[in-house]
Design a protein around this nucleic acid. Structure first.
Length: 378
RNA sequence: GGCGGAAUGGCCGAGUGGUCAAUGGCAACAGACUGUAAAUCUGUCGACGGGAGUCUACCAUGGUUCGAACCCAUGUUCCGCCA
C-alpha cells in the first residue's frame, strides 16, 4: 500500500505538488517532517502535532534500538501505538549516526562496529540490523542503511561512502524484500556523493537502478555552503525518477526548503525547528529572532503576526522573551511549536502556490521578506 | 561591656607580599545550532581606547616595604560566643 503521484508541477522551476499514499494516510507534498528521534518530537505533544498539521514524523532506528529496545516496542505493537501517533512515520536507518557518532565507531563493508553513546557497550550496525529493527518499529517508510560522510571529505573518502552506500542499499533491499511486510512498509534508497558531481551522478544511477519506491538525498546540510547544496540538487534534479518521491534529508533551514522545493524535492526533515526552539531562536516571515535578546523585552506583539500557531495567537514577544531568559520549559514548548508550524506552513504554502501556478512569485516574495544576515550565509 | 571572626568586581566566593584587573560559580549581554550524544554549546563581562596601552580598584585612613587585596595600627560595619 504505497503510491506516489505528482498532481501539479511548476512549469518554470519544476517544483512538484504530489500525494503520497501510505498505510497510515495520504501525505500531501511538498512536506516537512518533524523529527521525533526517541519516539518523541521534543517538547511537543502528539495532539499538538496534529493541530499544526504535521502529516508525518520521523523516528530513529539507532536511538530506539538502544532505548527502549526492540522488545519493548514490539510489545506495544510497533512505534505507532507505542507513542500514540496514528499518522505516517518514517524511520531513519541509523545511517546518520555513522556520521554523527563517528568517533565511537569503526566502519567496514560488513557494517559499523559501534559503541553506544549511552553506556559504551558494543553493537554492530548493518543493513540487516537496520531493516530488522525498522520492521519492528513498523514505520510506513523505512530508509536504507547508508554511509553519510563528513564535510569536507576528499573525493576518495566520498567515493568510498558512495560505493559502500550502494553495497548496503543492495543488502538493505534484499533483507527488506525477504523479511519485511511490503503492505505495511516501504523502503527508500539514499543517494550520497558529498559535493562531487560525478559521485552524485554515479550514486543516483546505482541507487535508482534498484527500483526503490522513493529516493532520498543524503550527505547534504553537513557543513557545505548553500550554493554547494543547491548545485548538488541541480545536478540530481535531472536524473532522479520523476514518478518517485524525493526526500532531502536533514533540511531544514527555511530558505533551504524553498530552494529545495524549487529543485524538485518533495520531502524534508530537520531538527532545526525543535532544537532552535528549545534554544530560543525562532523563525518568522521576516527572518530569524533570538528570543533571549533584550530588544524583545517589551514588545507586545506576536512572534509572527502572519502565523496561525497557538504561540502566535496567544502570547506576546515580551512574555515569550521572559520565558526564554528564565529557561522555563514552557518557552521551549511554545518556541518549538511555532518553529514547527512555521516550517510546515512553508511547505503548505509552497504546495498551494504550485497548484495555483504561481510558485515562482511565492518563492520570490518569501525570499524578499525573509532576511537573515546572520545565518549560515551561502 | 569583654573575647573571637569577617569585610574582594552586579551577587556568591577563591586568593594571604611581586607572574593580580584579580580562579570559580551565578546573573547579565551577545552568538551558534540543518536525516538530535544538544532544555545544549561558545563568546563578552572595572572604565576609556581600534590597538599598544592608560587609569581606577579588593571597607576607610595611615604605615611597613623596591613592591600590599595579602603585613601592621586605628576607625567603621557585620557575624558569633560570653557577661
Amino acid at each position: 500500500m504505497f503510491e506516489f503521484k505528482v498532481i501539479a508541477q511548476c512549469p518554470v522551476t519544476g517544483a512538484r505538488a504530489g500525494e503520497l499514499i501510505t498505510p497510515h494516510g495520504i501525505i500531501h507534498t511538498p512536506v516537512f517532517m518533524p523529527v521525533g528521534t526517541l519516539a518523541s518530537v521534543k517538547a511537543i505533544q502528539p495532539r499538538e502535532l496534529e493541530e499544526i498539521n504535521a502529516q508525518i514524523i520521523l523516528g530513529n532506528t539507532y536511538h530506539l534500538y538502544l532505548r527502549p529496545g526492540s522488545e519493548v516496542i514490539a510489545n506495544s505493537g510497533g512505534l505507532h501505538s507505542f507513542m500514540n501517533w496514528n499518522r505516517p512515520i518514517l524511520t531513519d536507518s541509523g545511517g546518520f549516526q555513522v556520521f554523527s557518532l563517528a568517533k565511537l565507531q569503526k566502519i567496514t563493508d560488513e557494517g559499523v562496529l559501534c559503541r553506544s553513546h549511552i553506556d559504551g557497550s558494543q553493537l554492530t550496525m548493518s543493513p540487516e540490523w537496520s531493516m530488522r529493527m525498522q520492521r519492528v518499529l513498523g514505520s510506513d517508510i523505512a530508509m536504507c542503511f547508508d554511509q553519510c560522510c563528513e564535510f569536507p571529505a576528499t573525493h576518495e573518502k566520498a567515493e568510498e561512502a558512495v560505493r559502500r552506500t550502494t553495497l548496503w542499499a543492495e543488502r538493505s533491499l534484499k533483507c527488506f524484500n525477504s523479511e519485511n511486510d511490503s503492505e505495511r512498509q516501504t523502503l527508500f534508497g539514499i543517494v550520497q556523493g558529498s559535493v562531487y558531481d560525478d559521485l552524485r551522478l554515479r550514486s543516483a544511477e546505482e541507487i535508482t537502478a534498484m527500483g526503490f519506491k522513493g529516493y532520498a538525498i543524503g550527505g547534504l546540510s553537513v557543513g557545505e555552503s548553500h550554493e554547494a547544496m543547491y548545485h548538488s540538487l541541480d545536478v540530481l534534479n535531472g536524473v532522479m525518477p520523476e514518478d518517485k518521491p524525493r526526500y532531502l534529508m536533514g533540511v531544514g533551514y527555511p530558505l533551504n526548503i524553498i530552494e529545495g522545493i524549487a529543485r524538485g524535492i518533495d520531502m524534508f526533515d530537520c531538527v532545526m525547528p525543535t532544537r532552535n526552539g528549545r534554544n530560543a531562536t525562532v523563525f518568522v516571515s521576516t527572518g530569524r529572532l533570538n528570543m533571549r535578546g533584550k530588544s524583545h523585552a517589551n514588545e507586545l506583539i506576536p512572534l509572527d503576526s502572519d502565523c496561525d500557531c497557538y504561540t502566535c495567537r496567544n502570547f506576546t514577544r515580551s512574555y515569550l522573551r521572559h520565558l526564554a531568559v528564565c529557561g522555563e520549559i514552557l518557552g521551549s514548548e511554545l518556541f518549538s511549536l511555532h518553529n514547527l508550524r512555521f516550517t510546515i506552513r512553508i511547505a503548505e504554502l509552497a504546495r498551494q502556490a504550485i497548484i495555483a501556478g504561481n510558485f515562482p512569485k511565492f518563492m520570490e516574495d518569501f525570499k524578499e521578506k525573509f532576511n537573515d544576515d546572520n545565518s549560515i550565509s551561502s
